[in-house]
Nucleic acid binder design. Structure first.
Lengths: 221, 221
DNA sequence: CGAATAGTGTCTGTGAGACAGTATTCT
DNA sequence: AGAATACTGTCTCACAGACACTATTCG
């Protein structure tokens, strides 16, 4: 009974999220091999134990090699498994979500990439619809008490842009003054010397994240 | 380059949590095979694609077959992977946490099971210390806004017992009247006809969860 | 000037902690 | 009666939303 020898397929899939026109978009890529060749799906690939020190490393490698992307925030979502999800047989896919600014994706459009606003990010092959919806659920919950939405923005951003990022992820409008108050008290962002005038009537102060990585708050934003 | 054929080991590990003497305990089992034979570790085993429809099913099967346990709540934590975590080579383990009442574990002590209070649940083999600490982190966070701690209790429980479960998971005392108020408003539990007098001076109303599964609150408890 | 966005000050409602006080059972 | 736990009522403070108000730039 060498059941240990029957080893399932292990893959990674990355839900790449970005912000475009104040809406969250999912980045998908046209598949060049079967199954589902020619269809758009999540960016994903096999885990290669010889070169990937972990599934997180595999996700970063796949993202880089297949799509030329480096997420500003890459976190594990959960693992999806079973016989039904892939026609090649029983498989397990460790799903990640990756956040990055719109510009980073726009530079790589030549790689068969497409950005789908959330309401059009359905009908994806495999169980990718489920993965996307779980990723959004997780991000929405996490957004309420962390600096997660900031990773959808370029390094330098205004408080308004940050609020719009939170609003896009949370799916609801936030109170402007309360938001400024809280973001200020939480000390998660720090002002930059420069100013931005572009695209707004009155120039606004630019900020950046105080710490390079995501921080969680004790209160809700 | 048939790199797809090199498939890593896929296992499940379950962090079984229960409540004993008002403290959270982790259930560990003595290993009967190498590596680390004779040492206590998390309950775990290989995923068997032929019989497990998913990793969740594998976790439930391993829990049942190896420990005779059925968790009242079994949820996926995350996947741990890499070369270092298991001497047999590159492996991925999908970790779950399972909650159940003390009595359920006590019935199965013959199966080389042991309950460790949190402060003594260290020095476990593999990366099981990390898995335990991540599981607790997740449960603590989830406890604050869900009915999770109720799954550490028998079906029927008093409000005091429920509060103690929350306190044990959260690691801090909760205000009694505020707790009753909130639990009441959240309508997560419903009263049972019976009363319990055992172990307390004044008999207390017994309750059960209104819904069989975990519910999340809009506010914090 | 008016439009538009940036940014501030203040009021108010709600919810959670604190805590006193009442209720019920046991020894 | 007194101990012990169950349960209730009320005060207060902090925080989030609402919203009015000022500030700065552009056309």
């Amino acid at each position: 009974m060498n059941q240990e020898l029957i080893r399932p397929i292990l893959t990674v899939d990355i839900v790449v999220l970005t912000l475009h026109e104040q809406r969250v978009h999912v980045v998908v890529q046209k598949r060049d091999k079967p199954p589902h060749a020619g269809h758009f799906a999540l960016i994903g690939g096999y885990v290669r134990p010889e070169e990937d020190v972990s599934t997180a490393a595999a996700a970063a490698r796949v993202l880089r090699d297949k799509a030329g992307l480096t997420a500003r925030l890459l976190e594990q979502l959960m693992t999806f498994s079973g016989t039904e999800r892939d026609p090649r047989g029983w498989s397990a896919s460790v799903a990640y979500y990756g956040l990055l600014p719109y510009q980073d994706v726009a530079q790589q459009v030549r790689r068969n990439l497409k950005m789908l606003p959330l309401d059009r990010a359905t009908g994806l092959p495999f169980d990718h619809d489920t993965i996307v919806s779980k990723a959004l659920e997780r991000c929405r919950r996490r957004a309420a008490y962390s600096s997660l939405p900031a990773f959808l923005l370029p390094i330098a951003f205004t408080q308004s842009a940050l609020r719009h990022a939170y609003e896009a992820v949370l799916g609801r409008a936030l109170n402007d003054s309360a938001f400024r108050r809280k973001i200020d008290e939480l000390r998660v962002i720090e002002p930059l010397a420069g100013n931005v005038s572009k695209a707004t009537a009155r120039p606004a102060q630019l900020y950046r994240l105080g710490r390079g990585h995501i921080v969680e708050f004790d209160r809700t934003v």
